[in-house]
Design a protein around this nucleic acid. Sequence first.
DNA 1: TAGATTGTTAATCGATTAACAATC
DNA 2: TAGATTGTTAATCGATTAACAATC
Lengths: 191, 191
Amino acid sequence: MNMGIERISSGDLGESMGLTASQIRQDYSCFGEFGQQGYGYNVVRLRAELATILGMEQKHTAIVIGVGNLGRALMENFHFESYGVVLTGGFDLNPALHGKIFGDVEIFPLECLKSFVKENPVSIAVLAVPQAVAQPLTETLSKLGIQGLWNFTNVEVKPCDSATMIVENVHFSDSLLALSYMISEEGDGTK
Amino acid sequence: MNMGIERISSGDLGESMGLTASQIRQDYSCFGEFGQQGYGYNVVRLRAELATILGMEQKHTAIVIGVGNLGRALMENFHFESYGVVLTGGFDLNPALHGKIFGDVEIFPLECLKSFVKENPVSIAVLAVPQAVAQPLTETLSKLGIQGLWNFTNVEVKPCDSATMIVENVHFSDSLLALSYMISEEGDGTK
DNA sequence: TAGATTGTTAATCGATTAACAATC
DNA sequence: TAGATTGTTAATCGATTAACAATC
């Protein structure tokens, strides 16, 4: 996407991201001085700087564990590449899925996980399995030396003590409860 | 789920939720005194109090807009009922889906949205459509008087100015970038 | 009574906002 | 030069943590 915009001010940037201009400037200044007084930020330069900071040039690799509807939705619709992540495989128990291709990426049997990870370095595992197997799989993944777990199971999971895997949770339920609560408050006259 | 536990202390509760005991006690005390010194919190009482506070007794109703893989995953696998929300319909453009049932809930043509909402009060719309149509649909939904939008599109959307619809975003991308960043930091020696 | 654990106050921390000199 | 907009400092705000008297 190229909208032909060369420069952008912290104010505009903030508005389009739902943040204040102050917040933008303060955050960016933690990493260096990308802007110019009286001018703003050069879009191309800014993008490059941010890519570096976020480690997007590092080309992390990811695999999807559990290819149900959610796993499949992520494989087909989520633009991993836009965030510097290359999806290299999907894993599922269901034999009907093995060999299938979703979003350019093949689905393998779960038994192949260990050997796959040995041959292809994997930095991130996307966990989209039923809750019952979330914890054991987390332990397996952490033992395989995977660095990050992107957890979509709505369950708290814990890597093995010996491992340093970082867990990032996407807890739908927290988000829905927050929304329910805000709706109820709204009509309340509370606040 | 009943694990036969009658009472629980703020410490245990916090540990299992990844919060501190202080945090638990302070949060609960905003809404009243549910606990007893030297005893802790009665699990049954606590659950009842929290249900009230979170408005779960309010039985919000929800519809899913866009029944691709993600919409379908939510309809089939996410336990709306556990959070006091009743799913009453799904909507999609694709005629092949019309009349299908996912997770007990029927899929209707998008054209029927307006009349459906008039006949069945809907408090929450779950937005799981392609990014290109996210904004126009948001405006439509806000005009229909829907109170909350649960936004899965990874795009910022804005209701009509005249409407009071609350938007709760589930931005996968923020979460993935955060994970990428943490992984890169990890090995760095930074920090 | 002694031990446990609350509710609440005060202290700490971090994040957001406001303000403004520096300067393009 | 005048206007715009940064980077940075200081002020504000809210959320988390620590501490402890109250009390079951």
